[in-house]
Simulated assay, not measured.
Amino acid sequence: MEPKYLARYLASSEIIDWHHPAVSAKARELANGCKGDAEIALRCFLFVRDEIFHSWDHRMNPVTLNASEVLRHKTGFCFAKSHLFAALLRANGIPAGLCYQRLVSGEYGQPFFLHGLNAVYLKDFGWYRADARGIKPGHDTQFTPPVEALPYIARAPGEAEFPEIWDEPLPFVVDTLTRYTDIEQVRRHLPDIDVISLPRADSPAREQT
């Protein structure tokens, strides 16, 4: 039996809006013919990674936030892509949450920036982190449970792997993606937070894999 707390990771919301007809239809399409939650999750991962374009990598506007917006415009920053990935999984009855890393930046005078990715609850493995931001030179990302295959690992001083799994995006992430209407503005104002200042999630910490 799955833990009761997983219900919050199946909810549809304003941002992870899997009840939107287009999102739920795409989720059904991706799940067609799959055997088990891991195969469905892989299909959803590959779709978001490869067919939804990272806004900065591909220099694509508009700035998107809600899962349905990301699907409609086929572009999003890492945070927005994680919202769509979570929505597609939840629409298929697979619990999914949001995770964050703090990474070194060095661009536009920003020492660090926050990076968004996902945690997926798979019946055979428990929580598993996956990053559908897209592949670029030097940064590969795969879906290979139970082994994580992430494009970034926080190792440098000041970087952090936040263990929390959030059912909704952090407020300052939402603020960034709603305040700025152009990808250049977002890139110059990527969200960041001191490690000691991050509010705690109500959700349990991610199980180590």
Rank of each mutant, 00 (worst) to 15 (best):
Y108L: 14
V195Y: 10
L98P: 10
R28K: 15
Y108T: 10
A87I: 00
R179D: 06
A67M: 02
E39T: 05
K81F: 03
V23N: 05
P21C: 04
R179W: 00
G76K: 02
R200L: 14
E39I: 01
R133P: 00
A160Y: 04
F85Y: 10
P21Q: 09
V120K: 13
F79K: 07
N66T: 03
F47W: 00
R133E: 02
F85G: 08
A91M: 04
G36E: 06
Y5C: 13
N32W: 06
H115A: 01
D167N: 15
K136Y: 03
C34K: 01
H58C: 10
Q101S: 03
L88E: 02
L114Y: 00
R28V: 05
I52K: 12
S197A: 13
W166V: 04
E51W: 06
L84W: 09
I183Q: 12
L114M: 07
R179I: 03
P169V: 01
L198I: 14
P204T: 14
R28C: 11
D131F: 00
L10A: 09
I153M: 11
F162K: 02
D192M: 06
E159N: 10
R200A: 15
R72M: 11
A205M: 06
I52Q: 11
L190Q: 12
E14G: 15
R8I: 04
T64I: 09
K26V: 01
S68I: 00
R129L: 06
D182N: 09
L98D: 14
V186H: 03
G36T: 02
V104Y: 10
R188S: 09
A156S: 09
A201D: 13
I52H: 11
Y128Q: 06
A149E: 06
G126P: 07
